[in-house]
């Protein structure tokens, strides 16, 4: 099972991306997405931004579970919208055995915390690509913990 995390800035610009696989059930975190899917995913995520922009004013919340899907519901998208209008989007599969619903929510909440810490760095500017290795490592650690 595979995941794809994208952090999208306020100008709909991607600032961080990561593909990874599950660590549960003796998996080693390797992504099983193939080349063709990988090329497609940025488009899927970008096209889903419109949906979020509709949803964000309709509901008084900032976590949107399974708000979009592709490949006949095989892949789903969940989004955590930060208060500064950054979008943390996770593409995932739903697996009844794993019951990973709550974990996905927890995962995105923790990514938000990591993002906030990055924002507090005086040398980082809004909408700048996140190139910090420390951030990358921490995201991977959170992924290992929850997904």
């Amino acid at each position: 099972m595979s995941y794809y995390l994208a952090v999208i800035g306020t100008m709909d610009n991607p600032i961080y991306e990561l593909e990874f696989g599950t660590f549960k059930q003796q998996n080693n975190g390797k992504s099983l997405l193939n080349q063709k899917q990988l090329e497609l995913i940025p488009f899927i995520i970008n096209s889903s931004l419109d949906l979020i922009e509709d949803l964000q004013w309709k509901f008084n919340k900032n976590y949107f579970k399974n708000y979009d899907n592709f490949n006949n519901n095989f892949y789903k998208l969940s989004c955590y919208l930060t208060f500064g209008n950054m979008k943390l989007i996770l593409l995932h599969q739903l697996d009844d055995n794993l019951k990973n619903d709550d974990n996905i929510k927890q995962f995105l909440f923790e990514i938000n915390e990591l993002y906030v810490k990055t924002m507090l760095n005086p040398f980082y500017n809004v909408n700048e690509k996140i190139k910090s290795e420390a951030f990358d490592l921490k995201v991977k650690a959170v992924a290992r913990k929850y997904l």
Binding site: L120, N121, P122, F123, Y124, S132
Partner: peptide, 8 residues
Amino acid sequence: TDFVELPE
């Protein structure tokens, strides 16, 4: 230096 990372 809390939160700080030097520019790359």
